[in-house]
């Protein structure tokens, strides 16, 4: 009796597709990271290991000129002759993305609660509007330039734009967390113990949903820090957001130096993700 081909090969083929896809997605990431420590990359694989020159130049620790100019450094603290300085592009983007996350929390958590907790006329529409991205970054950029010509390119304009672009991810993360909670029971017990409704929402409901809120914040932060399309259209002058800094290196710098810039970005994503996960598992705990 012959065995059906799908029984013999099916599972192997599907698994192979998965592994090939993981390879396709991950090999260039690993290669970029390794290549960022190389002095030369013109053959199949990078060579002349190990040098930190690329990283030093990208981080602005070594002299650079022209379009390959690296990060500036801002002094933030000066104590007894020692100055604590930070790479300005990096800090700028970290702060912009945090600002965006803050707005996302303020607008995203309440609407997620409204959709998850209440049945009302038009709730499907509210849901659809809050989880579908309204417009992509390029279109929003054009709209901002037109509507707020003076504000669009400023930090405030960037923060507001990021928050609108990334709000759906916050709503989705928080809503799915709310949906897994017994909201009505929680609300009713708190109310019956004498808490007002705003107090119930802020001190009972929100802390209980913290894992969803933190994961929403992580997603929104990484997406806002990496936002390129909107920034490219509206940004005019001053410190560059990180994504524009990356683009400048990818388009103008040597391959190894661009690899260092991109690797730096990988590191930031990994560090922030781990950091926020720590906050999620411990930081909000009020019981000490």
């Amino acid at each position: 009796m012959s065995v059906a081909p799908s029984r013999r090969f099916g599972r192997g083929l599907v698994t192979a597709t998965l592994l090939l896809a993981v390879g396709f997605l991950m090999v260039p990431v690993v290669l970029t990271f390794v290549g960022s420590f190389a002095g030369e990359w013109s053959g199949v694989l990078p060579s002349e290991f190990i040098t930190l020159q690329n990283w030093r130049e990208v981080l602005g620790l070594a002299e650079t000129i022209g379009s390959q100019r690296s990060m500036g450094w801002n002094a933030i603290l000066s104590v007894g002759g020692y100055t604590l300085a930070v790479p300005s592009e990096l800090i700028f983007s970290v702060a912009l993305a945090l600002g965006g996350v803050f707005i996302n929390l303020v607008v995203g958590v309440p609407i997620a609660y409204a959709v998850a907790r209440y049945d009302f006329r038009g709730d499907e529409w509210v849901n659809a509007i809050s989880v579908l991205p309204l417009v992509p970054g390029v279109i929003l950029g054009v709209a901002f330039l037109r509507a707020y010509p003076d504000l669009a390119g400023t930090s405030f304009g960037l923060i507001v734009g990021y928050s609108l672009l990334k709000a759906p991810f916050m709503v989705m993360a928080v809503r799915s967390e709310f949906e897994s909670m017994p909201l009505q029971r929680l609300e009713e017990s708190a109310r019956s113990l004498g808490a007002s409704w705003p107090r119930t929402f802020l001190t009972v409901i929100v802390p209980n949903a913290r894992s969803g809120i933190v994961s929403g914040a992580i997603i929104c932060w990484t997406l806002a820090a990496a936002e390129f399309n909107f920034s490219y259209i509206v940004w005019a002058k001053g410190t560059q957001p990180l994504a524009l800094f990356l683009q400048r290196h990818i388009s103008n710098s040597s391959f190894t130096k661009a690899a260092a810039a991109v690797s730096m970005f990988f590191c930031i994503i990994v560090v922030i993700t781990v950091l926020l996960q720590q906050v999620g598992s411990r930081g909000f705990d009020t019981r000490g």
């Binding site: 309440p110 509007i129 309204l134 417009v135 037109r146 707020y148 928050s163 709000a167 709503v171």
Partner: peptide, 20 residues
């Protein structure tokens, strides 16, 4: 609960799009 989101949507989304 919907007001903050609606405000952001109106100021950062709807008004700029209408202007465009």
């Amino acid at each position: 609960l919907c007001a903050p989101f609606a405000t952001l949507l109106a100021v950062a989304g709807a008004y700029p799009l209408v202007e465009v």
